[in-house]
Nucleic acid binder design. Structure first.
Lengths: 337, 337
DNA sequence: CTGTTAGCGCGTTCAT
DNA sequence: ATGAACGCGCTAACAG
């Protein structure tokens, strides 16, 4: 910067001002500065700038996995919004581990991110609202934490699940519907279970659930046991993307026909759901929008730089996309908002 | 840091030394320092540290998209390796646009990343090897650029594609095989096409290719035209993940039976390939390993801090995973290395 | 409208 | 083994 100032025949402050537009500078001198910058190929050092101005122009993003297309899509959206604001994104994965999540959040703090977007891991053990984070803007997405001060964005987990299960009950007359969850301690899984439970209860049916479908093997085993038992379920409701995959694998492996022998409805749509055989009936959640809304919320917070006692809670709508795995015969998918 | 020094009754330098282990400090004083750190909840400011030491402990990662599971998996692996080295990752997407890619790379430079991992967009327009990047370690993955100085990691694109097409020719006697590419200017697509071309040529068959399957609509249209024409293809070879998806959609939409009416083999395996109907025969590439190897290469470079005239070129093996869309009847998939 | 001074929080260099 | 002074590259605050 010194060199630029010298070449342009001005002080370093003027260069700084030209770059930031922070004060009035004569067009004349501004031009000289720009020429010098061009000539020297000067690029401001963002680290020094951040150190001095207390603005790193960086946000942090913590997601459980990147290979879950739902989270990947969220991350993509966040990145897009950040670019619009000229911010960089430090991205990291927690692998659903609260300790990793905490460590990564701390590391981001030390890097002085101006804010963080977090998909919290374990609902109870997540520590992202602890004291050390009090000075950093945090927005949770997909899953909230027990801290009213944080902004959060989520989808209609409970009502979406309820509607899907009602569809199985009312349209297809299922009475024994099994709920398959990925992990008992995930907020989303709990909410969806609650929706499932209510739908069952309102129809005077007995809920039946398992929460350990976090790997292909255990899922196969669980499904095996269930189908072998007496009064086996006639329909499955899978609580997320991965669980749906695992269940599908298991069913195919065992040669169980869907929906004839077992109907299936899943939470979270994905790319190939409409070319599977049968096509999959799912609750679709707006992944991109979730990321976009959360990121905008965060930038809003950063701009105002306030820490209200009560954060915003935004709930995005889901849709029931009816294809064929539920038992419907529709040639094309029907969307119910 | 000043506060810590004061509380511990030492100079700031001693605190620094304790934190970095850069010189001998009495156990006694070290303990006092640790206690003070604990008491004050002190965390070193990584930005100041970076500014002073010229080491940001940060790398950059540029991928085209995050919603392509192949790239997402690479990104996940990169993240994991970076964590092992205590580095942060600034991640951004280029959307296959060389201009965006260049801008993002420059922005990373200004943030003084110690190195960059890039999946370059357009093979000819990519400018990541220009002069301004000469002082930064760059490793390209998946697709190399025309600059021998950069390390690069890729897979066996040509031979993998060739083998897959040979399978269609030799095992299933196809003579009119259509190559479906995502984008003419992608290195991977070109290499895979070359493999396809050779396989066809060696069997004295006429190559037939299209390179514009970058969206669902155009792909459907192209396939429509091809199947309507005289001498329609009896098999498809799709050059990547997304093209495979699009083609599958189009075929299903038109009610074309696979593999009876048209056989299909794709490059790049994905999660649901083995529960589609039919299960998909694909060339599987090691996505995680690609990311891991590239990241390790980069950290190696960073550690040695040299800029050799000739970078490493690593080529990872692929496998042909034979399922049923090619026409094979196997109950389970067969993997050919 | 522009330049000067000071210091953000560290680590390098030299002294002790 | 430890501390003091200085500077990394930049900008806030104040002069002029």
């Amino acid at each position: 910067m010194n060199d630029v100032a010298r070449v342009a025949g001005v002080g370093t402050m003027t260069v700084s001002r030209v770059l930031n537009g922070s004060a009035n500078v004569t067009e004349e001198t501004a031009k000289r500065v720009y020429r010098a910058i061009e000539k020297l190929g000067y690029r401001p050092n963002e680290m020094a700038r951040a150190l001095r101005s207390f603005k790193s122009r960086t946000i942090g993003l913590i997601v459980p996995y990147l290979f879950d297309p739902f989270f990947a899509t969220c991350a993509h959206a966040v990145n897009t919004v950040a670019r619009e604001h000229n911010y960089s994104v430090i991205l990291t994965t927690s692998n659903e581990d609260p300790v990793t999540e905490f460590n990564e959040a701390q590391s981001m703090l030390q890097r002085h991110v101006e804010g963080m977007l977090i998909i919290p891991a374990d609902i109870r053990k997540s520590r992202v609202s602890q004291a050390e984070f009090a000075g950093t803007h945090i927005v949770t997405l997909d899953r909230p934490v027990h801290d009213a001060r944080l902004d959060s964005v989520q989808v209609q987990n409970q009502s979406g699940a309820k509607r899907a299960v009602q569809h199985l009950i009312q349209q297809h007359d299922h009475k024994r519907i099994l709920f398959l969850g990925f992990n008992r301690n995930l907020y989303t899984v709990r909410s969806r279970f609650e929706g499932y439970r209510r739908a069952m209860q309102e129809s005077h049916l007995e809920p039946s659930a398992t929460f350990d479908c976090s790997s292909e093997e255990t899922t196969a085993e669980i499904i095996d046991n269930q189908l072998q038992g007496k009064n086996p379920p006639t329909a499955f409701f899978t609580a997320n993307n991965l669980t749906t995959r695992y269940s599908l694998h298991a069913l195919l492996e065992k040669g169980v026909r869907v929906p004839e022998e077992v109907a299936l409805v899943g939470f979270d749509d994905f790319e190939l759901a409409d070319i599977l055989h049968p096509t999959l009936t799912v609750v679709r959640q707006p992944a991109s929008e979730l990321g976009r809304v959360a990121a905008n919320l965060l930038f809003d917070r950063i701009k105002r730089d306030e820490f209200p006692e009560e954060g915003s809670r935004i709930v995005l709508p889901v849709e029931l996309v009816i294809r064929r795995s539920c038992g419907c015969k529709a040639r094309h998918s029907t969307v119910i908002a």
